[in-house]
Write a protein that binds this DNA or RNA. Structure first.
Lengths: 233, 233
DNA sequence: CCGCGCTGCCACAATTCTGCCGCGGAAAGG
DNA sequence: CCTTTCCGCGGCAGAATTGTGGCAGCGCGG
């Protein structure tokens, strides 16, 4: 499995050329040219490392990093304009793992990426919480995006997977729709509460297709949802 | 129990449209178009969260925040013009909880508001009351909204849960119907006294369904109710 | 350009919750 | 024992909340 990187820059040219170069090196690359989109994407599909441009409209790289750091320890490399020394200190102070000043050679970027990956000890795994949840009949492997019920695979979409993961993380614990929203999309997204219901509907349906008796996702009227584990009190 | 927000901006249009949107979401909204008025209003009628425009005549948002911070830890979200990057760092450095650059989508504002409220709410809940009431056979876990009697789960509705919680908080102590009402609904709600009786009826019924002998909720004629703990009192 | 899977959201039906009433029965108070 | 209050309980209709089928927009790959 190829290591997946993320590239965030508002300049489409850079995005294209760099991602091409990285792909040539055997990496998978997710590209984002909008930092808000990036924030969502990075949460939902955490790569092994992210390369962020510091200067971006709407939300700049430092802010993006700050929001990211609230939930994840994702390794980050900053891209800075060389005339802006301020950025460097700022970036590193905020928890970036390295930075490169524009213009940069792709060779240099590659070297830094490999170095950071090596340092963070991650080769294949991307996510920060590559846990495998396994409660009785349910198994969730967030690393491989695999979900199974009683041994049979249940194909879930990304959103469904994240929601179920959030629920199954703590069997017996109630999660409000807001909390589930956070878990699946990140804090900066606002959706109708009822959208969560829709996803729950789809998750239930998929499980019931394999097991008509499936009833582990319980609704708490006026509160939210919870995943019922096996009789574990 | 509508959450009350405050909105401070010198632009009446923004004030109107945003407050409308927020009210549609079920929030109560206090609006101020003058920061000095706002300061007074925010002190006298503190909302759950305030949204402040940074650029305002007379007293700008940062100054308002500074004065506010002398007396209160009110959560604050700043509105900044996007061409003014300085504001951002400034606002956050001063203790704003988040900020949004104009122009902003109401959806984003909503997301941020909910996120900030959630964060500040968690601190209160997590810090002050780690509520798990456990007296002999009864167990109440408000975090998980879980209630059990002699090990078996008893499903309660939100109202029932709150009432039982209020009663079980101090076994042996009498609670008047008014006190119970406050505990379950907040102080500004008035209902028929007999409504409490109805809920007590339902709670008793649910417990008796599991244990016909259940008699821990005692009626004090003319006074109210009390929860009897184990005779170990 | 077309089809397909994923998503968010809406509308409507189904379910659950809740505040209150009214009918006895029970608990003071004489 | 009688009167007055207060309470338990069964019900109910309206309010709230949730389940579900559908539909339209979007991104992706032919």
């Amino acid at each position: 499995m190829a290591t997946r990187l993320a590239l965030v820059d508002d300049d489409q040219n850079i995005l294209a050329s760099v991602s091409l170069a990285l792909e040539a090196e055997g990496y998978e690359v997710d590209t984002y040219f909008d930092s808000e989109q990036a924030l969502i994407g990075l949460m939902r599909r955490p790569p092994a490392l992210a390369v962020l441009d510091i200067k971006m409209p709407r939300m700049d790289g430092t802010e993006l990093l700050a929001k990211l750091r609230q939930k994840s320890a994702l390794p980050v490399i900053f891209l800075t304009s060389k005339d802006d020394e301020l950025d460097e200190a700022l970036g590193l102070g905020m928890g970036a793992d390295d930075y490169i000043t524009k213009p940069f050679s792709q060779r240099l970027l590659l070297a830094r990426i490999k170095a950071v990956l090596r340092r963070s000890g991650l080769e294949i795994t991307g996510g920060t919480k590559a846990d495998i949840i396994s409660h009785g009949d349910l198994m969730l492997d967030s690393d491989r995006h695999l979900c199974s019920w009683k041994g049979r695979e249940v194909k879930l979409t990304v959103t469904e997977f994240l929601l179920l993961q959030a629920l199954a993380q703590r069997p017996g614990h109630v999660k409000s729709r807001d909390q589930l929203m956070d878990a699946a999309y990140g804090e900066s997204v606002f959706l109708e509460d009822r959208t969560i219901d829709s996803h729950i509907k789809r998750i239930r349906r998929k499980f019931r297709a394999h097991d008509a008796e499936f009833d582990r996702i319980e609704t708490l009227y006026g509160i939210g949802y919870k995943y019922k584990g096996d009789e574990a009190a």
